[in-house]
Amino acid sequence: MPVKKGSSGISRRDFLKGMGTTILSTAVVTGGGLVPDSATAALLDDTVETISGRVKISLRVNHKVYSVAVEPRTTLLEVLRERLGLTGAKPACNRGECGACTVLVDNQPMLACSLLAVDVRDADIITVEGLSTDDTLTAVQKAFVEKDGLMCGFCTPGFVVAATALLQKNPNPSLSEIKQGLSGNLCRCAAYPKIFEAVQQAARTMQRGK
């Protein structure tokens, strides 16, 4: 079971400001640094740290801090899916080729399948489940629903996260910029035209919300 140790809301709030979404800020910042409470993690000195075998680390995911046991080889995707029950990010290729496992790491879209969990201990990780803090949909999610920007939906979480990151960086993208921004996500059903429409609609909604 994940242990909720505390949460951090600041970066989250800043992030959502640009998105025309109302969120409740419930969090109190509980100190930044996270030291793994591990038996085998050793801080040899200030300059070198080694981790081997199974160790407990803390991960900040969707504003909650989780304590999980991992090995150095455990990927972020495995932790999210197998330990935290966050199955939004998908293991479709597991090699960084399809974008279905896209998550935000310190606000940047990255591929959870190609990140070691021990490597993102200091990061703020947001998965598709954490884009909205309540049950309402974000502007991007709402637009994907209304424009039908999906078919089987297996790649959808990756697209939604990538589109969210794209609009955060470029609130008014051209069609060509939308294509560029989503060029790291594959959809075998090929719902692309409706996905583009969804991103365009989300951009308009978010512009109005400002």
Binding site: L86, F144, G153
Partner: peptide, 11 residues
């Protein structure tokens, strides 16, 4: 679609 866009649909 709402379940799918939130990552809540269980495949």
């Amino acid at each position: 679609a709402p379940l799918k866009v939130q990552g809540k649909a269980r495949y």
